[in-house]
Nucleic acid binder design. Structure first.
Length: 106
DNA sequence: CGTATGACGAGCC
DNA sequence: AGGCTCGCCATAC
């Protein structure tokens, strides 16, 4: 992690970093992990502000929208996100991540 | 300190 | 199914 990102952002990045390879978590799910049951948008904001240098350590591509949707405004591009996920063996169904198979579990 | 902004999400139509 | 509205939250200005 960088020296001192905003407190909440840091927790969000840490949570995202904890998403295992080949699995995904929704923005809302990440929000809950950091103690913000309704802070899905805040998570999106945090990832939007993710420094490129930090992107190396934070698997931002494993964060998708509810139902496994890839956000059109995702980082460098939704295509890159899909490519990265596929590279990890993540399956897609009708253009969405198969959350039943790759969703983050307890 | 009030308003605007988004990589969201659940509900409704 | 697809699209729109409204609510939520932490930041940016």
């Amino acid at each position: 992690m960088a020296e001192r990102p905003q407190l909440v952002f840091a927790r969000i990045y840490e949570a995202v970093r904890g998403i295992p390879r080949g699995r995904v978590a929704s923005y809302g799910q990440v929000a809950r992990l950091v103690g913000m049951p309704r802070g899905a948008r805040a998570v999106g904001w945090a990832l939007r502000a993710l420094p490129q240098a930090l992107a190396r350590q934070v698997p931002w591509h494993r964060v998708v929208g509810a139902g496994g949707r890839i956000s059109p405004r995702a980082g460098p591009g939704p295509e890159l996100q899909r490519r990265r996920l596929r590279a990890e063996g993540v399956r897609f169904k009708a253009g969405r991540v198969d959350v039943a198979r790759h969703g983050l579990r307890a």
